[in-house]
Structures are given as C-alpha cells and as structure tokens.
C-alpha cells in the first residue's frame, strides 16, 4: 500500500505549448530556440538576459567593492568556459560609459594541490597545464569521501592562494546544476546544517569571500550561451561511482523531464539556514557549522552502536562535524 499523503504527481510532465514556444519571452518576436521546454528566446534577448543575470547575481550580494581584486577559479568545465566569456563581455561593457560598471580587477587561476598559476588574460586561461600536487592525500574509505575531500582541499587551497596573492574575492565556476548536485550530496552526507556554505551565493573564509556568480544558470542555459558565441562546449565530466554520481544522475534525470527541478533546488537552498540555537561551533576540517545540540539521529546512531557490539567505542574526534568524522586525515 502506498503510505504517502499525496503529492506524488504534484509536478506534471511539461507539455510545451506550441504557440507560446514560437515567441521570444522578452520581445515577443519569433523565437530562435527553446529552453526549459517552454521558453522561447531570440538570440539578442537571450544573451542580454544572461549578461543581466550574471551582473545581478553578483550585484545583489552587495559584497563587491570598487577596486576589488577577484581571482577567477578556473578548470576545464562548462561553467569555467562560460565564466571566461561572461567576464570578457563585462570588461568590454565597462569600457563604454553607458552601462553600469562593475569595476574589478580579474585574474584567472588554476589551483591544484596547494599551488597554482595566475593568468592575466582570458585567452591564456583557456590553455592550461596540469600543476602537480605535492601534498599526498591520505587514502579514503570510498570514492565518495575521496571526491569530497579532494574538493574541500581544493577549496581551501584556492582560498589560501587568494589570500597569499592579495585577492579579496574568488569567483567559482559552479553552475546552478552543479550546486543542485552538491545540495543533494550534502544532505546525503549529513551536512544539512551547512547548506548555506556549500550551496549559497557566497562563503567567507580567512578574510576571503568566495562567490558563485553562475548559480542561477542551469547547464542547459550555459550550453546554449556558449553555442550562441560559437564557443566549443567542454564535455561534461561525471564522477566515478559514488554518492556524488548518484546525486548527479538523479537531478539530471529529473531535470530532463521537469526543467524547474534545478532552480527549485537552489531556491530552496536559499531559504534554509543552519539551526542556530547551538553556540557557534565550527568544524576543524571543513570550517563549516557543526551543530552540537541537535538531539536526534546522532544519538540514535550511538545507541545502535552501543547495543550492537561489546567493543569500547572509539573516542569521537573532537571539533569535527559528523560528516568530516568519516574522513581520515594526516
């Protein structure tokens, strides 16, 4: 018997309205392509919408100050390619007096391990070399933890690098689709109390602010953006078998049928905060909030462990959040 209280079919499969999709949603003229199954766009309107969204995502954080040095964290992803072009357009716009200026100094960096290389030029950033890492990663129990730890270490490295080279801001190239994957993975890892850090528009560590300007763009939207500028779209990288991979497949599968899935997920992320009743306890490893007074699942886990074995329980690693306790460190 289904024990659900309904809501199973609350999202009906989208059936595109032929008449609607033929018109551009902005200018109402003939559309050239369709996104999200239902929205028709013409080229100029769409590109304008993208540039506007990019500017406003950064602008509404109110975190950027004139003269800020911004490190743009690059890799070989679709988001990174789109970011390079969006910034190029932004720089050109700044040269004209008509548009509102976002006057910042942008440099591009590839950071791996704890070292990186800075590039000045948009073009040079497209050709990059692997930078070998000195820091040997301790082996993890499984690929989920390995992937997670790698991304955490990279983030720490970028922030450290930015700090050392006097950058006050870092732009990441995570798209809205990436963040939707990360949100589900985070929840499945027990990081529900840390969602603002992992999926929010900004994150602060050691005086450096990390921003996610592409978070309101789905992969489909950026793919279209690149194609309109005849830029080669980098092939999508998928993680090996892991929770990250399951989350990617799950979200992407739903997104294909229900194009509002990704936006709904990051909008939901915006409304969630950590349970702030407990005093500010921060995890040593990830630097995120470590809820210490939530009575529930963790205690249930302890009880199960007590009742299932006669071995003395290992002392809990102090100052680490539940999820980071699964990760082995040096």
């Amino acid at each position: 018997m289904c024990s659900n209280s309904g809501g199973c079919e609350s999202l009906q499969r989208i059936v595109p309205d032929e008449d609607k999709t033929k018109k551009c949603v902005s200018c109402k003229q003939l559309s050239e392509f369709v996104l999200r199954k239902v929205n028709g766009y013409c080229r100029p309107c769409y590109l304008e919408a993208c540039h506007h969204k990019f500017r406003s995502t950064v602008g509404k954080t109110k975190l950027m100050k004139p003269g800020d040095r911004v490190l743009v964290w690059q890799n070989s992803s679709l988001g990174a390619a789109a970011m390079r072009h969006l910034l190029e357009v932004l720089e050109k716009e700044n040269e004209t007096a008509l548009k509102k200026k976002l006057q910042f100094e942008f440099k591009f960096a590839l950071v791996e391990g704890y070292d990186g290389t800075i590039f000045n030029d948009f073009k040079i950033a497209e050709r990059w070399r692997r930078i070998s890492s000195d820091a040997a990663e301790p082996p993890q129990r499984n690929s989920t933890l390995k992937l997670f730890n790698e991304s955490l270490v990279s983030q720490k490295a970028v922030i450290e690098f930015a700090r050392k080279h006097n950058f006050s801001k870092v732009f990441t190239c995570d798209t809205g689709s990436d963040l939707a994957h990360i949100m589900l993975t985070s929840i499945s890892l027990g990081r529900g109390g840390q969602l603002p850090d992992w999926t929010g528009v900004s994150l602060e560590r050691d005086g450096v602010v990390l921003l996610r300007p592409l978070r309101e763009f789905t992969e489909e939207e950026l793919d279209r953006y690149l194609k309109l500028y005849s830029i080669e779209v980098p092939t999508q990288k998928r993680s090996p078998s892991s929770i990250q991979r399951l989350s990617q497949d799950f979200v992407d599968g739903l997104q294909a049928d229900f194009p509002s899935t990704v936006p709904t997920i990051w909008r939901t992320a915006d409304k969630i905060a950590a349970d702030s009743k407990s005093p500010l306890s921060v995890c040593d490893h990830c630097g995120c909030f470590n809820p210490t007074d939530v009575v529930g699942a963790m205690q249930a886990l302890e009880i199960s462990a007590e009742l299932s074995t006669t071995l003395k329980l290992e002392k809990q690693i102090p100052n680490r959040c539940h999820a980071c306790r699964q990760i082995s460190i040096d």
């Binding site: 929840i187 529900g192 349970d275 529930g296 699942a297």
Partner: peptide
C-alpha cells in the same frame, strides 16, 4: 541506491533535516 553506496546515508538525510531551519 544511496543505501547501497553507504547505508548510513539514510540516517544522514534525517540528521540533515534535523539540522535545517528556516532562514530569517
């Protein structure tokens, strides 16, 4: 599928839910 990868996932999701609260 999560349970196959790591059975603790189910409890982790509940824990995540317990840690969440509404943004002001």
């Amino acid at each position: 599928n999560l349970e196959l990868q790591d059975p603790l996932s189910i409890l982790n999701i509940i824990y995540s839910g317990e840690c969440m609260s509404l943004r002001e």
